[in-house]
Design a protein around this nucleic acid. Structure first.
Lengths: 283, 283
DNA sequence: CAATAAATGTAATAAAATTACAAAAGATAA
DNA sequence: TTATCTTTTGTAATTTTATTACATTTATTG
């Protein structure tokens, strides 16, 4: 965790005066790194030693060290911030913002991934005799995508964006099946019900959703895709991308676990698709 | 250019003593950022003011400023590279690689976006009386996603991943329609044929695909999604994400062009969905 | 409402960086 | 070469900056 994130997360546990310092820094971190301890103390309306103590509380050696670490945490490395699109943005502006926000979401997701759960999920998928992907609305296309990928393997795959179909599939699932539920909010009633049904059949219920959430409660394994997002007017964008990448990770793990033989099969599939394509070097 | 690169490139044009300072810093930049001007001067066997002058020569305000910038340049800056997954990668390893590669793809795509074409595309979509999204295989889910998003507006939207359906829709299109063709390679024969048909009806044919490619040749507007990719055993991953983000950009432009009234409508849709969800603060 | 602990500030001190100026070192032209 | 000028470097003083020691205030607990 870099210093800026640490500051954000620990601001609550700071004393009154130290919080004043934190506020000033958070208001303009870029400016803060060029201020002397005296200037900063004045801005925060505290004494200089308070600023110094504040630095030590954050685990740094002193004020100069703090500035150094702060400067590093401000560098383009985690520069991807969730910036809101405004009505009067130029095309260039909002394009940049959307790309940045998406990358920010991926960054956050990667950092918060629970590798243990991920391995559990891959393990479950590898042992499954049938895999189903369920999503509704915006998450339907994510489930659709997952199906596309898993179709290339020999395990039967099902995808549905229809509540009745999903319900039937859930009822007919068994202990060796994996059902993957994809939902941005984790609050879609229909999906929660279906997950509960699947759970009763002792199938593995894998959730790619917000955690905690009602849907997460119904799952045997949850991969959290929660991303700090603009739940504003614009529809879920970034979190859906994060979900897709999580699925990429799952399928990669699945492929690797199957070993080199499987990769040969994949190659065969690729080749069989070639006939339906124009030759690369023809035009 | 960051400070460390600058230092490397200007070391030749420095004076004798200043070069000594440069050498000491380059030998251990990470260590240098924690040294005082006195320590550094001693190590370089020069006087303190020489170190200070050295900093100014490099275009910084002084020694503390120099250290700050040096610290920043030492941070892993936008290092997102397309790294290949290996058979013996740990879960953590390949997860990191996939996230990084995806971010790298987004970075590349953003850099190569042609804003003019993007605006043409948004313009065309805004004036369309009907919008269709076509994709096959892995690109079908991208088209599916696009439909989901555009369904929230009042312009009729069609999505299909079926060649016959697509063909019929293309034949029945007209000059006020926009047909969006999504393809990773731009070489899928069926899709090219359908695009050609659509072209003849004078509809706007928008391609989200590789450029140049046979499909791109059939399009009136092409948004390039070509990403340097692992066409290896693993299936297209990152390019698909880039396509989705391009669609996010399109819909955002579309929404903004419709103005604030439209945003109210979106809010209404969101609220109407609320009933099908669990309350956020209940469970 | 004491007694104690925690937080904060004041003032002194120490450390660090910068400046002004002087001394070398090097370049240029008679 | 040497006188003159420019550039480079160092010394010492000065200023700025950060830290420490200690006093004061504020909060907490029995």
């Amino acid at each position: 965790m870099n210093l800026l994130e640490k500051l954000h997360s620990e601001v609550a546990s700071l004393s009154k005066s130290e919080r004043k310092v934190a506020d000033v820094i958070l208001a303009d971190p870029q400016g803060a790194i060029h201020k002397s301890i005296a200037t900063l103390a004045q801005l925060a309306e505290v004494s200089e030693p308070t600023v110094n103590r504040f630095c030590r509380t954050l685990g740094t050696k002193g004020y100069p060290d703090f500035k150094l670490l702060l400067a590093q945490s401000l560098v383009k490395g985690t520069p991807f911030v969730n910036r809101h699109v405004e009505q009067d943005d130029s095309t260039e502006d909002f394009t940049g913002k959307i790309f940045e926000s998406t990358m920010a979401a991926l960054n956050v997701t990667r950092k918060h991934i629970d590798i243990d759960r991920l391995e559990q999920a891959i393990e479950a998928l590898s042992n499954a005799t049938k895999i189903s992907f369920f999503g509704l609305g915006a998450s339907a296309s994510v489930a659709h995508d997952a199906q596309n990928k898993f179709l290339r393997f020999d395990t039967p795959v099902l995808f549905s964006d229809d509540v009745m179909m999903q319900r039937m599939a859930a009822i007919n699932s068994g202990p060796t099946d994996v059902l993957v539920f994809i939902s941005h909010t984790g609050r879609t009633k229909a999906l929660c019900e279906i997950a509960a049904i699947a759970r009763q059949t002792q199938a593995t219920v894998l959730g790619i959703t917000a955690d905690p959430s009602p849907l997460a409660d119904e799952c045997s394994i949850v991969l959290s895709s929660q991303v700090p997002e603009d739940t504003d007017v614009y529809m879920p964008m970034a979190s859906r991308i994060a979900q897709l990448v999580l699925i990429d990770v799952l399928i990669t793990g699945y492929t690797l676990r199957r070993g080199p033989d499987f990769r040969d099969k994949l190659r065969l599939i690729k080749e069989s698709l070639r006939d339906s394509r124009f030759d690369k070097h023809k035009g």
